[in-house]
Amino acid sequence: MIEAIRVRGSAMWWLASILIFWTVQGCGGPVRFVRAVEENPEQVVRLEARYGQGQSHGYDGAVMPFDHPTAFGRIEMETILRGLRVQLRKSLLTLGAAESGPKEVFTESERRSFAPVLVEAFAKARPDEWVVFFLGHPRGGEADHRGGPGVTEVTSGGFLVEGRQLHLVLANYRSAVSMPLILDRMRDDPLRPAGEVFYELVPGVHQTVHQFDSIKSTWDLIKSFRAGLSALTIDYQAARIFPDESMRTPDGGHSTEERLRALRRLRDQGLVTEEEYRLKRQKLLDEL
């Protein structure tokens, strides 16, 4: 019996050590300062300053402010949202899954309700704040939730602006969730993936994709990194000038018509003078 007590004592000591270790690790999450822009059960948009290890981290990990507030138009934001696409990521766990082409991240109805709130959020955002979002809808409609827990599809992530670029980190794309407590956790921290990331962002015009590997100092974002979150960078200034990708020439350049329209927009926005506009316009016409 004495042996049993000794062995049991040793096991208890180790278990206690692990408990303390993981508890301390678990407590090392970021400090977040949150301001709500919109909060309802199906749509959440917040401004969120995230601090880890005493510093505010920028998108690329540097300690630098974002270019907030930023002015976007509602139509412009809807256009940006319409241009966001994902596709099934190839991994061990998606073996055998049916292949499908890129899909739009947001449905038309989501874009309509989401875009104005995003515009408002960017107008209010401070230089150290992300614009984070959570969209949750019952899969299969309300019928799915009758008679007990149902499935909610969650799309969540965060936006921020640095220079002429708009960044998107997509933490969850239509992830199926059943437990209300997990749903609350995702609503509380939209940048936290629910688990395996099955989808990745697909770059479109004026967009580039890269791994989201910043902010490695805290548990939840270590998870984000390890889960393989991809991030999308949108050159939204270029998109303002050349928004219509259908007008691209076969070699990927911009057609004369598109360039003329862009030039007119620049003049209308006061970015070029009337004289500069006329000179440049004539030059473009001479190329025909």
Partner: peptide
């Protein structure tokens, strides 16, 4: 590198685009 929970029937995780927490 800790991520999240493992899956019991991954076929259903694939089918429903869900983590094991579903």
């Amino acid at each position: 590198a800790t991520v999240w929970e493992a899956k019991a029937i991954p076929a259903w995780a694939r089918k429903y685009n869900a983590d094991c927490g579903l």
